[in-house]
Design a protein around this nucleic acid. Sequence first.
DNA 1: CTAAGAACTTAGCACGAGGTGT
DNA 2: ACACCTCGTGCTAAGTTCTTAG
Length: 779
Amino acid sequence: MKDAELESVKKVGKANGKKSAVKEELSDSESDVPLGKRGNKGKKSATPSKRTTRANTANAAQVKQENKTPKTNDTKAKRKRNESDSEFDDKKRPAKSTAKSAVKKASPQKKKKKEDPAEKDMSEKKKGKQKVVKEESDEEDDEEYRWWEAENAKGDGTVKWNTLEHNGVYFPPEYVPHNVKMKYDGKEVHLEPEAEEVATFYAAALNTEHVENPTFNENFFRDFKAILDKSDKNPPIEDFKKCDFTPILDHLEREKEKRKAMSKEEKQKLKEEKLQLEEKYGYCYLDGRKQKVGNFRIEPPSLFRGRGKHPKTGSLKLRVQPEQVTINIGKAAKVPEPPAGHNWNKVIHDNTVTWLATWKENVNENIKYVFLAANSTLKGQSDFKKFEKARELKDIVAKIRHDYNKDMTNKVTAIRQRATAMYFIDRLALRAGNEKKEGEEADTVGCCSLRFEHIRLEAGNTVHFDFLGKDSIRYQNTVTVDGQVFKNLKLFQRHKESDKDQLFDRVNTQELNKHLSSYMDGLTAKVFRTYNASHTFQEQLKNTPVSGSVNEKILAYNRANREVAILCNHQRTVSKTFDNQMNRIEDKIRALKYQKMRLKKTMLTLDPKLKKKRPELDEPESDLGEEWCEEYEKHLEEKEKDRLRKKFEKDNEKRKSEGKGPLSESELNEQLEEAEEKTKQLSKERKTGKMEVKKSQTVEKVEAQIEKVNERIKVVNLTKVEKEENKTTALGTSKINYIDPRISAAWCYKHDVPIDKIFNKSLRDKFKWAMEVDKNWKF
DNA sequence: CTAAGAACTTAGCACGAGGTGT
DNA sequence: ACACCTCGTGCTAAGTTCTTAG
């Protein structure tokens, strides 16, 4: 069997994790199924984004496994027509039956709504087939519809719905001028509302690093001036350097304060208004089932904040008018009213797409859409399909690897290049790398668009990667590649005229994907990323300690997650307060160790003979310097004194209210002195090792206390380790997009970890289709 | 075929609500 | 009760891939 190919996963220095400078082999074997670990360097990048990059991970052995998709319950599936009638009236829609009701059999239906013939047409025209799975409109509301148990859970991909009702989109409110004057050349100037709005956008950016970016400033100022010129009531503003927006920023900050200081009632009111909006625009009815809409708010005007060196960053993104917005809605549904005095661009009824509204944004001319939320059936189904596709790849990946290894030596350069590119996509989980429009977008690359300047070859089949990928995130990785891959890279390099030349000049993503699709319908470059991520995750989970605590298991889970994040190069900026947070945790640990140290001494005091039998009791705690202890003791003293003073005050107040006279100051002072004494005592005890022992204390009791402290130290240490390892790595993206949630669910069942320890509410909601797998389910 | 357009997934970050420790 | 932080959430930019136009 082809999958005998086990790979050689070498565990990357997990203990030292992240920062290890370990370099590892990528793969090696000539066997067609290499796989292996990725090297990881973890050096600080010099990139402006001040991130650390790395990429590595193990790719693991293939587990063969029959993949069962969730069982379907075919009997049910009786089509029922939704009764959605025109308006949204929740009352009409019976509230759901509670969720957990186990597999519900399709509830017998009730009235069917007459179907719009045109709509039917549409659904049939594309492919005819596909009976859309819709049932039980009764159950409406919440997640009642268990599409993954329905007959054709996959849907066929062309017809996305039969009926669709919604209330359109929400437009941000008109601009309300604040009349705060900016300064030009030191003098206050008045701006017309339109210009004031733009000035305010800039003012709001003053505390960000955008304003240090000349491109941002140039683009902003060009667009700002154009707006200024629209009215001759605006002052002549010619020189950006003479502009001072700080008065507006101050105003914004004051407003923010005000908002913070609002009364409970006011806040409550705002909240309700927001809720009302969500009520109206936040839901739609798709095939009669209530679904959450993702982004029903039209994007408000702003300054475009492109990432990295985006040439258009800072440009003014204009307010979107209803006249630009196209609405997509069911034929039978009531068309939402555009805002008063306005019209929609158009209203269409296309049931082969999933969006409810669309418009074109002016800065990059990108098309924007209003889609359903992540927990909707539509999104859930396509998520499911994505992972099933990746699982299909599992069965043929050996063949694909075999083929590209063979193609590595093909005489046709294009084929060699393709093979080499596939190797990177497969082994390093690189993105496809489409061409980008020069001068219109940031210069970032993926596999097919790599240039010679992005790799450096080193003897020993070593390749250093260093380039900016999606979102201008730096990808740095050092990898030992297969010998033939190395030879190919050298070969391609021979023909280069410039470092700016494409590494794979005969390959593009369309071709590459076309080739991939010859192996399997729907196979594209990105499937490898999904496959590799989920596969790696599943393998890494094997390191879960079987008898560990829940916390330790979760740590293992997060480690596995982290390996995937590293593989996919998912990064985040280091939090400004990171060092601080770290110091706090360390202090916390030291405080615990201090406690433990005292407990140990107590034991020895109780039973001096233990010194011989249990020499470890006499050993000092690591990390607990003399100096630190003194400081800590002082700190304890201060805290105690504070407490005493407060208590004193409180007592006095109480006495006053009871008509008694105040306690005397000397009483307090006495107590304060006691606290000081206590410190001295602590210090003395620490130095002599002779503890003052309470009668009730016994060796056994103290021992138990030590055990407890040890537990706590362990827990805090775990959080410290995690925090460190997560410094620059973002786990969320892979969890949300790349890791098959069924792996996680199965792991939870197998290891008895509550699912909400790893999936928050929205993830559980998004992945509800994945929650019912067997604990032995395999990706 | 190639290029542009359209549709949908993937991505990091800002911000604020709510929980936690003092 | 308060500051402080954590974490979830919303936002929208930036990718990939599919589709259509030329």
